[in-house]
Simulated scan of single mutants.
Amino acid sequence: MSGALSAPSFWWRPPGPAAFALAPIGWLYGAITASRMARKPAYTAAVPVICVGNFTVGGTGKTPFALALAEGLRARGEKPVFLTRGYGGRLSGGPPVLLDPARHGPVEAGDEPLLLAADGPVVIAADRAAGARLAERLGSVILMDDGLQNPALAKTVSLALVDAASGIGNGFCLPAGPLRAPVERQLAHIDALVTIGDGTAASPVEAAARARGLPIFRASLDAREAHWLTGIRVLAFAGIGRPERFAQSLRAAGAEVVQTRFFGDHRAFTEREAQELLDRAAQEDLVLVTTAKDRVRLGNDRGDNALARLARQAKVLGVEMRPDDPQGLAAFLGARLSQGVSPHS
């Protein structure tokens, strides 16, 4: 599994020299992506497809939100199947594969697919249309984790998540900013906006969504069973899109975050890094705490190498996505699923 670089800090500040210098490239990148999004889908699945995406690169809670949707769908008698690219895993580049956690580890599958697999069947496929052909035989509805900008598969419902605290950053497209395409052009392809967490940074996006008549839902990513953290001195480590949010969750749970060590999103930990974390925790008598996604990437805890010892020693802060209006969200999805493919596809 390849490592990943951290997002440049200037993406999340008002536009400055670096952003303006890269803006011409960003304009071209955004125009190409927007044009690609407008293509006619190559395949329409035999079952409904719900896409959980976002406007930017980096984490907005897509995987926890997909898990929350799956729970709601099962309550309605549906059999959801997750469809994911499997970013960072070796399986991503090959034909569609039904993930088997007993055979496929983080090197093969990536981290997020393994989290999803604890909840239901997962198909890994970079070719979303080919993946849908396999997934449609396994359940009654496909939950596509990411893929908003991918036109290969027709979506029944497209949801775009935006972080209320960070919004869309500086509003520029890659590499000048975090956007994959201009927001207005992406809004044309979604059916609802979902704002995650607290803050006002997403207000401009919400205003643009309202102008288009799109429904807006809200949700929060909350720590689960975190009472054990109260008063605990912690070394927090993570390789996720927005690691600062992880540290904030630890503090909100009552932990004293003494040290942090953040890596790039989807980063594969090395033996040297694992040993460094173990040494730093031992020197200051700190409890190592990480995310479920990072724990998956550590692999199994058997053996005496540093990664195995870190896997045994690190505690996990569990989180879950909680929609503010689950009944309203369920009603919206039910109505859209009964209507068939979204007109935006």
Rank of each mutant, 00 (worst) to 15 (best):
S203T: 14
A164I: 08
T195L: 15
V157A: 14
A164S: 08
L161F: 07
A192T: 03
Q186C: 13
G177L: 01
L159M: 10
N170S: 03
A188N: 03
I190P: 03
G197P: 09
A176W: 01
A176Y: 01
A152S: 07
G197H: 10
A164W: 06
P178F: 09
L148G: 14
G197C: 10
Q149C: 11
G177E: 04
A188P: 04
C173N: 06
H189K: 14
R185C: 13
L179Q: 06
T156D: 15
A181W: 05
N150D: 15
T156G: 15
A201M: 07
A188H: 00
A176P: 00
A160Y: 00
T156C: 15
N170D: 08
G171Y: 00
S158W: 10
E184A: 06
L148R: 15
A160Q: 01
E184D: 08
A152Y: 02
G169K: 12
K155V: 14
G197E: 08
N150V: 04
L161R: 03
N170A: 07
G199Q: 14
P175M: 01
T195V: 15
N150T: 13
A192F: 01
V157Q: 14
V162L: 02
L187M: 07
A164P: 09
E184P: 05
T200N: 13
I196D: 04
C173Q: 11
G197M: 12
I168H: 05
D198Y: 12
S166K: 13
D146R: 06
L187Y: 03
P178H: 07
N170F: 04
Q149S: 11
G197R: 04
T156V: 13
G171Q: 02
L187A: 09
D191V: 06
L174S: 01
L179V: 07
G167T: 01
S158L: 03
A201W: 11
F172G: 00
H189F: 15
D163G: 03
Q149I: 12
P178L: 10
A181P: 11
A202T: 01
C173M: 10
P182R: 08
L148F: 08
D163H: 02
T195H: 02
N150F: 13
N150P: 06
L159S: 05
A154S: 11
N170Y: 04
V194S: 00
A202Y: 04
D146W: 12
K155Y: 14
A201K: 09
I196Y: 06
L148E: 12
I168F: 05
D163M: 09
T156N: 15
P178W: 11
L193G: 02
L174Y: 09
R180G: 03
L161P: 06
A165R: 08
I190D: 02
G197Q: 07
P151S: 09
P175F: 11
A202E: 04
A201R: 14
V162R: 00
L179A: 03
L187Q: 07
E184Q: 08
L159I: 09
S158Y: 05
T200S: 12
G177S: 05
L159E: 10
L187N: 08
T195F: 04
V194M: 06
R180Y: 02
A154N: 10
T195R: 14
S166W: 10
G169D: 11
A154M: 12
G177N: 07
F172A: 05
Q186M: 14
A152D: 09
R180T: 05
A181Y: 08
